[in-house]
Amino acid sequence: MAIAFPNASRPFDITRGAVCFWGYDSAFEFTFYVDADALHRLGPQSTSDEASLLRTFDANAHASNP
């Protein structure tokens, strides 16, 4: 079974310096993190503040899925 991402919540975890999101595979929940360095590579124009990093995450979260 493929991992599904039905939960649109994606908070910024300050202690990890990363955006956190969840995926589900049947009855199992998995936590994923994309750190600020990776987000800066995806959006070089983004700054290090939470709002900018979340915008970069959102802009790229579904880039490969129509």
Rank of each mutant, 00 (worst) to 15 (best):
S26L: 15
F28V: 14
G43V: 01
D49R: 01
A61Q: 08
A36R: 09
H62D: 05
T56L: 04
N7C: 08
V34L: 11
G17I: 03
T56Q: 06
G17L: 04
A38S: 13
P11T: 10
T56D: 04
P66M: 02
S64D: 14
E50V: 15
S26E: 10
I14C: 06
A27C: 08
T31W: 01
W22L: 10
W22V: 11
A36H: 05
T15H: 12
A51K: 09
T47Y: 00
F32D: 05
A18W: 04
T31E: 12
C20P: 00
A51E: 14
D25H: 14
R41V: 03
F30N: 09
L54E: 05
A63G: 07
T56G: 02
G17Q: 08
S48A: 13
S26Y: 10
Q45W: 08
L39E: 05
P44T: 03
L42G: 00
Q45M: 08
D13P: 04
H40Y: 05
F30W: 11
L39F: 05
E50L: 01
F28A: 12
F30P: 01
A51F: 07
P44F: 01
P6F: 04
L53M: 09
L42C: 04
D35T: 10
F5W: 10
D25V: 03
R10A: 13
H40R: 15
F57C: 05
S26C: 07
T56Y: 07
V34M: 09
S26H: 10
E50Q: 14
D49I: 01
F30Y: 13
N60Y: 07
D37H: 07
S26V: 11
P44S: 07
F32W: 08
V34C: 07
H62K: 10
V34P: 02
S64Q: 15
W22D: 03
R10P: 00
D37E: 15
A36D: 15
T47S: 14
L39Y: 02
C20H: 15
F57E: 02
F28P: 01
A59P: 04
A18T: 03
T47N: 07
P6E: 13
A18R: 01
L54M: 13
N65M: 14
A61L: 14
A59S: 10
F30H: 12
A36G: 06
S52L: 09
F28K: 14
L42P: 00
E50P: 04
A36I: 03
A18H: 03
I3L: 14
A2E: 13
L39P: 02
A27Q: 13
P6T: 02
F12L: 10
A27W: 15
L42S: 04
N65D: 11
M1P: 08
P11Q: 09
D13V: 15
H40Q: 15
F57S: 02
C20G: 05
E50F: 00
M1R: 12
M1F: 10
G23T: 00
A59F: 10
D25Q: 15
E29S: 11
A59T: 04
N65R: 10
H62E: 05
G43I: 00
F5V: 03
I14L: 10
I3R: 09
P11S: 14
D37K: 10
F5E: 02
D35W: 06
D35Y: 08
F21G: 00
A8E: 13
G17A: 07
A63W: 06
A4P: 01
F57R: 00
D13S: 12
N60T: 09
T47G: 13
S9T: 11
P11Y: 06
D25F: 06
P44A: 06
D49Y: 02
P11F: 05
D25N: 14
